[in-house]
Computed example of a mutant assay.
Amino acid sequence: MPDTTPTWRAVEDEVVRGRQRLIFVRDDDRYLLTTLGVFADGVVVWRWQTTDFDGLRAALDDGTLTLAPPAGSPVTVSDTATGSAWLESFRTPEQVLADLADEVDRLNDRPDSAGRCREALDAYAADPAPDGLALVRSRYHAVPEHRRIYMLGDMDHNDVPVRVLLAELGEEIPARRPGSTLTVTAETREWALEYFRRGERAVAESRERDEADGPQTTMPRRVGGHVYPNGWPSPPGPEVLQIDYPAPVVHDGREYPTVMHAYWALSTSDGAWHDRIAAAGRGLDARRLGQEAPRRDDWPAVRLGVMAALLRGKFEQHPELARELIATGDDRLLYVDWSSSFWSSTGTNWLGRLLELVRSELT
């Protein structure tokens, strides 16, 4: 995206990719122009502050960060200039948050909001059912409004084919040319459906040509390490393999919100800490608390067995999630955990290996 640039930070032996943009931070009675970085693991950084998307939203809400300082406010550009400014932002905080959430998707090599909308559009074109159109509508409105005209990557049509499908018959919508309109008819709807069908046919033909060159080899599959600033995808996909995916798991008669909650709660020898960890809002919050809690003396000896039991419980108790694990076939699973080389493929990859073990037991 033109308003962000690449950046990175080191976590243990792993380089975590990121993107950064300019933003103003309030400093007493003045505003400093600084960089705001977002990273593939969901970490957000500005100046000396490290937080996540919830912290970023709070900082934008309370005025700690702003896209444009109040008129006439003292402004400093570090080592460059100082003075007062009258600035007006052409973005809203919500638009910037949505853009940055898309950046996190792309840093994790997964479809962003536009890509998820395109997936829904292709599925609807193949089977124009009402539920499919409802999903298209939901995903289209999840694309940042100022990015929608670019979502198809088609300068000749912009997002007109999408808006045709979402409009009622007889409705007039803005057309490609400024000031012109288009009346939606049965014919224009069929044109829009065919637009997406042609794209799918082109992809299928390209895939067939590639496969004709020789047998395809199975590549190791990376799982884990993904964060979703706007909430977990619905319907879910491979992200259900992550240990922080919100799938309640029952272990020894106690229910925990996620495997990560259960793992860290069971790691402590203190009952009060156990309950506090189990009640944490997210899996990542449970891990932060668990790292502070007093550890069981036998934890190094039992932690692999505990994790294996929790993973078995998760997939036995949630058959729909087990199907996602089985769908990985015989691929080698490389688990990404930005904070632990013990569990991650950057080290011993124990989570990937345990997922493969549970998969073999399910098939």
Rank of each mutant, 00 (worst) to 15 (best):
6 P>E: 13
9 R>T: 08
9 R>P: 03
9 R>S: 14
11 V>C: 11
13 D>Q: 15
18 G>H: 04
20 Q>D: 03
22 L>H: 11
27 D>L: 14
29 D>M: 12
30 R>D: 14
45 V>T: 11
51 T>C: 08
52 D>W: 04
54 D>S: 09
61 D>N: 14
62 D>L: 07
78 S>L: 15
81 A>N: 10
83 G>W: 10
87 L>M: 13
87 L>T: 03
87 L>C: 10
87 L>H: 03
89 S>I: 04
90 F>Q: 14
96 V>R: 06
97 L>F: 08
100 L>F: 02
101 A>K: 01
103 E>Q: 13
104 V>P: 06
110 R>V: 15
114 A>L: 02
116 R>Y: 00
121 L>G: 10
121 L>M: 13
126 A>N: 04
126 A>D: 13
135 L>N: 02
135 L>P: 00
137 R>C: 06
142 A>R: 03
143 V>Y: 00
145 E>Q: 14
146 H>F: 08
148 R>K: 06
150 Y>K: 12
152 L>A: 01
154 D>N: 03
158 N>D: 12
161 P>M: 02
164 V>N: 00
165 L>N: 02
168 E>Q: 15
171 E>P: 00
176 R>M: 09
177 R>H: 04
178 P>E: 09
178 P>W: 05
178 P>D: 04
179 G>C: 03
189 R>T: 02
190 E>W: 04
190 E>V: 08
190 E>S: 14
193 L>F: 01
194 E>I: 00
196 F>H: 00
198 R>H: 09
198 R>L: 01
198 R>W: 05
203 V>S: 10
204 A>M: 11
205 E>R: 04
209 R>C: 03
212 A>C: 07
216 Q>D: 11
219 M>Q: 12
220 P>Q: 01
224 G>S: 07
224 G>Q: 01
225 G>N: 01
227 V>E: 09
230 N>K: 14
230 N>T: 12
231 G>D: 03
233 P>E: 05
236 P>C: 10
237 G>F: 00
238 P>C: 05
238 P>G: 10
239 E>N: 07
243 I>M: 12
247 A>C: 11
248 P>R: 12
250 V>K: 04
253 G>F: 01
257 P>W: 06
260 M>L: 15
267 S>M: 10
269 S>Y: 05
270 D>R: 05
270 D>P: 11
272 A>M: 15
272 A>K: 13
276 R>H: 08
280 A>R: 06
281 G>A: 11
281 G>M: 04
281 G>H: 11
282 R>I: 05
288 R>S: 14
291 Q>L: 11
292 E>D: 03
294 P>Y: 02
297 D>F: 08
298 D>P: 05
300 P>D: 00
302 V>T: 13
302 V>A: 05
304 L>R: 10
306 V>D: 02
307 M>D: 07
307 M>W: 08
307 M>N: 07
308 A>F: 02
309 A>M: 01
310 L>K: 00
314 K>C: 11
317 Q>K: 03
318 H>E: 07
319 P>W: 06
324 E>P: 03
324 E>L: 05
325 L>Q: 04
327 A>H: 01
329 G>E: 11
330 D>W: 02
330 D>A: 08
331 D>W: 00
331 D>Y: 01
332 R>L: 12
338 W>N: 12
339 S>K: 03
339 S>V: 06
341 S>I: 13
342 F>V: 08
344 S>P: 02
348 T>E: 15
350 W>E: 14
353 R>H: 08
358 V>E: 15
359 R>W: 07
359 R>S: 09
361 E>S: 14
